[in-house]
Simulated scan of single mutants.
Amino acid sequence: MRHDRLWLLGGAFFALVVVAFGFLFFIRPEQQDTDTIRSDAADAQLKVDQQRRELATLAKQHEHIEEFKAALAKDQAALPDADRASDFLRELQSAGELTGVTVSGVSVGSAVDLKALVGFEVYALPVSLTVAGPTGKLNPFLDQLQVAQPRAVLISSINVAPTSTGSDRSNVTINLQAFYAPLS
Rank of each mutant, 00 (worst) to 15 (best):
M1V: 01
H3E: 12
D4N: 12
R5F: 13
W7M: 10
L9N: 08
L9Q: 08
L9D: 07
L9I: 08
G10Q: 15
G11I: 15
A12F: 13
F13W: 10
F14Y: 10
V18I: 09
V18R: 06
V18N: 04
V19F: 04
F21M: 14
L24G: 13
F26Q: 07
F26H: 07
R28H: 00
P29K: 00
Q32H: 12
Q32C: 09
Q32E: 14
D33S: 05
T34C: 05
T34V: 04
I37W: 03
R38T: 00
D40I: 04
A41I: 00
A41E: 02
L46D: 15
K47L: 04
Q50F: 01
Q50W: 00
Q51N: 13
Q51S: 15
R53M: 12
L55G: 11
A56R: 12
L58P: 06
L58V: 07
A59T: 06
Q61I: 03
E63S: 15
K69Y: 14
L72V: 07
L72F: 05
A73D: 10
Q76Y: 03
Q76R: 05
A78Y: 00
L79D: 09
P80Q: 13
D83H: 01
A85E: 11
A85W: 06
D87V: 05
F88T: 00
F88C: 00
F88W: 03
E91K: 02
L92D: 03
S94I: 15
S94F: 12
G96E: 14
E97F: 10
T99F: 10
T102F: 06
G105A: 10
V106A: 05
V108D: 15
V108K: 13
G109V: 06
G109N: 10
S110G: 09
S110C: 05
L114V: 11
V118N: 05
G119C: 11
E121V: 10
E121I: 07
Y123K: 02
Y123H: 01
A124H: 03
L125G: 01
P126K: 02
V127H: 04
S128K: 13
T130D: 15
T130L: 13
A132R: 10
A132M: 09
A132I: 12
G133M: 01
P134E: 10
P134M: 07
T135A: 08
P140Q: 10
F141W: 05
D143P: 03
D143C: 03
Q144F: 11
L145V: 03
Q146M: 06
V147Y: 10
A148D: 05
A148R: 05
Q149E: 02
Q149Y: 03
P150L: 00
V153D: 04
S156L: 09
S156F: 09
S157E: 09
I158H: 09
N159L: 11
V160G: 04
V160F: 05
A161Q: 06
P162Q: 09
T163L: 11
S164Y: 06
T165R: 05
R169Q: 12
R169V: 15
R169A: 14
S170K: 03
N171G: 13
T173L: 00
T173A: 00
T173W: 02
A178G: 01
F179D: 02
Y180E: 02
Y180I: 03
S184P: 10
